[in-house]
C-alpha cells in the first residue's frame, strides 16, 4: 500500500475461503485477504482462476462453503441476508458490475435499467429521476436512455452498466473485467471514470487480466493462480516486475513482442 493515509477500517476480511460449483468444479481453494475502506485493489489471474467467483462472494451473491467472509466485522452468510434490513443496507453499499453487460442490463430500456437498483432499494421515485438525469449528463448517456440495451455497442453497454451501479451511490465498486473487449480509447475513458470514483473515496475492486490497466486502477494487486489460490500479492510495480510470477500464472507469455509491450506500458 502507498501508506499516505492513516490506517483505514477493514471492509472485507476473508479467511481460507473455498467455493466449488455443484460440489464438483472447484473455483476457490482457500483464499484469504483483507480489503480496507478506500483501497483500490486489482485481482489478476488467467481465465478460470476464480476472480469472478471471488467478486460474487464479496457481493454476497454466493457464500463461502468453507472458511469465512466478513463485511465490517459481520459474517456474510445466507442466513444474514434473510434479514431484509441488513440485506438492504449491504446492497446499498456494495455495487457489482458483471463481466457480461447482457446479464447486467435486463430491462427493456436503459432508463429502466438504471432506475432498477435504486427503486428496489427503496429510493423515492423523484430522487431516482433526479439522479438519473444527473448521471446521464456526467456519463454523457442522455441519448441512450430510451434505447433498448440490445441496440447499444459494447462500449455503450459497459458505460450504461457502470451507470446502473453508480446511481445507487455505493461505497464499494466491484468490477468484473470492465475493459474486456473495449478499444483503447473507450478503455481509457472508463479508467478515467474509475479514477474519479476513487477520488470520491470509493473502494474499488477490479478483476482483470489486462495488465496494462492495473497501475491506473490499483494500489494493491492479488494474483490468482491456476490452483485457485492466491499466488502472490504486492503493489502494481512489484507484481509487474515479477516476470516469473506472471509467467507461472499464464498472465504473460514468452514472445519477442512482449518486452516491447512491457516498455510501452511502463512509459
Amino acid at each position: 500500500m502507498t501508506g499516505q493515509k492513516e490506517p483505514a477500517p477493514v471492509l472485507f476480511e476473508c479467511r481460507d475461503v473455498h467455493y466449488s460449483y455443484q460440489g464438483r468444479f472447484p473455483a476457490l481453494n482457500g483464499v484469504g485477504l483483507t480489503i480496507t475502506a478506500g483501497e483500490r485493489v486489482a485481482l489478476v489471474g488467467a481465465n478460470g482462476s476464480g476472480k469472478s467467483t471471488f467478486l460474487h462472494l464479496l457481493d454476497a451473491l454466493i457464500f463461502p462453503q468453507r472458511g469465512t467472509l466478513a463485511y465490517i466485522g459481520k459474517e456474510l452468510t445466507e442466513k444474514s441476508f434473510l434479514d431484509a434490513e441488513f440485506s438492504l443496507r449491504f446492497r446499498r453499499k456494495i455495487g457489482l458490475i458483471f463481466q457480461n453487460p447482457d446479464v447486467q442490463l435486463f430491462c427493456p430500456t436503459v432508463r429502466e435499467d438504471i432506475a432498477f437498483g435504486p427503486l428496489q432499494l427503496g429510493m423515492e421515485e423523484k430522487t431516482v429521476k433526479a439522479r438519473l438525469e444527473l448521471l446521464a449528463e456526467t456519463l454523457q448517456i442522455g441519448p441512450l436512455l430510451d434505447r433498448s440495451p440490445h441496440q447499444l455497442s459494447l462500449g455503450e453497454k459497459r458505460k450504461v452498466a457502470f451507470a446502473t451501479i453508480l446511481v445507487i451511490e455505493p461505497d464499494v465498486l466491484l468490477l468484473d473485467e470492465p475493459t474486456a473487449g473495449l478499444d483503447p480509447k473507450t478503455s481509457t475513458k472508463l479508467i478515467g471514470m474509475l479514477a474519479e470514483a476513487s477520488h470520491s473515496g470509493k473502494t474499488i475492486v477490479t478483476a482483470t487480466h489486462d495488465l496494462h490497466i492495473i497501475e491506473d486502477i490499483a494500489d494493491k494487486v492479488y494474483v490468482f493462480g491456476q490452483d485457485k489460490k492466491l499466488a502472490g500479492a504486492g503493489t502494481p510495480a512489484e507484481i509487474l516486475g515479477d516476470t516469473a510470477l506472471l509467467q507461472a500464472n499464464n498472465l504473460i507469455h514468452i514472445h519477442p513482442h512482449h518486452t516491447r509491450d512491457h516498455k510501452v506500458m511502463k512509459a
Binding site: 460474487h56 457481493d59 451473491l61 431484509a84 440485506s87 438492504l88 446492497r91 446499498r92 456494495i94 455495487g95 457489482l96 458483471f98 457480461n100 446479464v103 447486467q104 435486463f106 432498477f116 437498483g117 428496489q120 432499494l121 427503496g122 446502473t164 451501479i165 445507487i168
Partner: peptide, 12 residues
C-alpha cells in the same frame, strides 16, 4: 446470472 444481477441491485 440475471437473477444474481437483480439480487445484487436489491431485488427481493
Amino acid at each position: 446470472q440475471v437473477y444474481q444481477a437483480m439480487v445484487s441491485r436489491g431485488f427481493r
